[in-house]
Design a protein around this nucleic acid. Structure first.
Lengths: 274, 274
DNA sequence: TTGCTCCTCACGTCACGTGAGGTGGC
DNA sequence: TTGCTCCTCACGTCACGTGAGGTGGC
């Protein structure tokens, strides 16, 4: 006599907790085959175990519930695979970031002091190809990588003359609120052609210069906070407070070398006498 | 003129958000060097950036706050390293589990159907060396690995005769509430010596047998839910409900082969006619 | 009938993020 | 003075877990 299963029995079949099953019912992700109108007892069909198995695996990979719903409801195998693949890619990105942080933690412990040289400089106004977006601090590196690749392609496509190292503009909100409107740019002295439409995110814009304190950060971007701290402390000691967005200039970056230890980044602290 | 920094300035130096800094103050993890009694404005010393850098890295690795506190407050470098090393080990375990789940997801999608053979059997009562503990479902595999290693060593140390494959006893709470008191055991027919005191977790106990439905699970433990579903559905179709804890017998396991695809596990469903 | 299973709230978790509404400092 | 920075609540987030208190089913 084949029949439905109580929530406890279904839990044993699927290894999903009773609490989780009730939750999935409540949000409509995995609805019991039948619910008794009087007692409200849930009844599951053994065939629902397949969906449960899928859900359990996706959740074990920390896929957000709404994304799980997309996968489970996918009528089309292509769409299902694409959603899963997207999540796996995000996981790999996360893993890479984790590796970077582990290395950065080791570096901090082994060599807690960083000595930097601070220099005062006047940044010129520049015209540049730019990409701007609202970015979270922990997504900065990945976002920047994609942005500069696109900018590089746009430079070629518009036959522009590059007039200096690429840079980033970071409003204080990026640090204070962990997200903000960030701009990546490549200075150009002349743009022969208009920017092709394929580069929808790329624009031509002016980047204002100004007085800054500069320190050169040596090494991976994950360690940038250490140069920020040293530079900020130095500025503070000089009685200078940062005014406006912080600038980074990518003197040696991934476009030049594959070894992050060789990266060189100039961190520019906008200057105001106090 | 060196002086303290406002929370906004300190945020820029450390790349910790203002909200996070306030939170760390509230819980006493990173207390400002000074707090104005009137305005309650926080003031940080630039030297506090070091602690902030450490905290930021540990949190980026998802280390729980209380563990971060242990690291930050550690007076002794040994203790600090040990705490960090423990977290890194936990992260690697997690990574391994993730890899297993990804493989398991692939397997589920590629081959959604599992056909199993169900057999009825009478399990005998056995005397066994056992380890019991309250375990969460997602820690089962790691816990079992350690438990069986310890049981193996205890078998040797007590000069016991092994009388059958190792097994596990799983109460329904393990599935329904995602945690429960689990027992790992190795049946023995004779114990020559007493169990040495080094094996504090190991005891000699009787494991009750009984009537069961058995299906053999082929492959990694991460896929066990699929055999549970097939076996439970088969039992249901026979009008049989599980009564009492489920049993697993590890016929071919990591002690025999390094290839999880060759694992063979008998899943035993306790039987009651309904 | 007993005790086990199931039910529904209401609230907790964890480490902050999101506003609202208001005040202090330069 | 203006506007920017900072403050403190109170509540939200996410995917369930933790009880409390009660009822249904065999």
């Amino acid at each position: 006599v084949s029949s439905t299963l109580s929530i406890g029995e279904f839990s044993k079949l699927t290894h999903l907790s009773v609490k989780a099953l009730r939750h999935y019912h409540e949000i409509g992700l995995l609805v019991p085959a039948d619910v008794d109108t009087g007692s409200r007892y849930r009844r599951y069909d053994p065939a629902q175990a397949r969906d449960a198995q899928l859900i359990r695996r996706l959740r074990a990979l920390d896929m957000p519930i709404e994304m799980v719903r997309t996968v489970v409801n996918a009528t089309d195998g292509e769409q299902r695979s694409a959603t899963i693949a997207a999540h796996l890619r995000a996981m790999e990105d996360e893993l890479e970031r984790t590796r970077d942080v582990v290395a950065s933690l080791r570096a901090l412990i082994e060599q807690p002091l960083l000595d930097i040289e601070v220099e005062r400089r006047s940044l010129p106004d520049v015209t540049a190809l730019v990409i701007s977006a609202n970015v979270r601090h922990d997504h900065l590196e990945r976002w920047g990588g994609a942005a500069f690749e696109e900018l590089g392609a746009a430079v070629v496509a518009s036959r522009a003359d590059v007039a200096g190292p690429g840079g980033g503009v970071f409003p204080t909100a990026l640090f204070e609120e962990d997200r903000g409107r960030v701009t990546a740019y490549v200075p150009v002295s002349a743009v022969q052609d208009t920017i092709p439409r394929d580069f929808a995110r790329v624009a031509l814009a002016d980047i204002a210069g100004g007085e800054v304190l500069v320190a050169t950060h040596a090494g991976p971007y994950t360690d940038l906070d250490r140069t920020y701290a040293a530079l900020g402390a130095a500025a503070n000691e000089m009685g200078i407070a940062a005014d406006g967005p912080i600038r980074e200039l990518y003197i040696v970056g991934p476009d030049v070398t594959d070894d992050p230890l060789r990266y060189r980044t100039e961190v520019c602290w906008p200057v105001v006498e106090s």
